[in-house]
Amino acid sequence: MKLEMKDSPGQLVAALKPISDMGGNILSVIHERDPEADGGLLDVQIMCEISEGTLDTLLSQYRSQGISVLRVGEERFLVRRSIILIGHLIHTDISDTIDKIDSTGYAEVHELSMVMPAINEPSSAKMTIKSDCITDVNRALAILRDVAREKELLIIESLEGN
């Protein structure tokens, strides 16, 4: 779910409590405060598992609390795509590259495995990006392509789904 709520103390707990009260399982919460946002509102993404038939009750509780539900999906992070990066990954700050994907709020780096043959030799890494839909994975891959151009890294993309 993607929710919009007042940016004030206690609002996040108020959004999570009904899920818990219904016996739901909260799997992840993405809560980023945007200092540029106007209106004192905050977007929060919640991934949870709830029993069938409880969604309408949960949505009703949110409405009564003044929490707007912007999006409801069945499951999050269903789509994964792996790519290979080749170049001076450490020298060009691989953590910065990862942050550019993770900070989007709609995709994240799920796995990273790297081989570094020698200090002055190019490294290679397999990176897996995950999101809830192919559109957002493609948006994240577009960001990664831009970063690769900027950092002079080679990207090898899969021709088939991962």
Rank of each mutant, 00 (worst) to 15 (best):
L112G: 00
A37M: 04
M114Q: 05
T54F: 01
S51T: 13
V72E: 02
G40S: 01
S123V: 11
L141Q: 00
E152W: 03
G66P: 02
E32N: 15
T92H: 14
L42Y: 13
K130C: 03
L55F: 10
V147M: 02
I30Y: 15
A140M: 01
K2L: 14
D132P: 09
L159C: 05
I94P: 02
S124D: 03
L159H: 04
Y62G: 06
I84E: 13
A140N: 04
A14D: 11
I134A: 07
V115D: 11
S64L: 14
R81V: 11
G161E: 09
I86D: 08
D102P: 08
A15Y: 03
S131W: 05
V72S: 00
M116E: 10
D93G: 04
K100A: 11
N120I: 15
D102L: 13
E49A: 06
A15C: 03
A118E: 14
T128Y: 08
G66E: 08
I143H: 03
G10C: 07
E32F: 12
L154G: 07
D96Q: 09
A107Y: 12
I86T: 10
L154W: 08
P35M: 01
P9F: 12
T135L: 13
S124E: 02
L16H: 06
I46R: 00
G66V: 14
I86K: 15
R81I: 11
I119N: 09
N138I: 08
E157M: 05
S68N: 12
L153Y: 00
G87H: 14
H31Q: 02
D43F: 13
L70H: 07
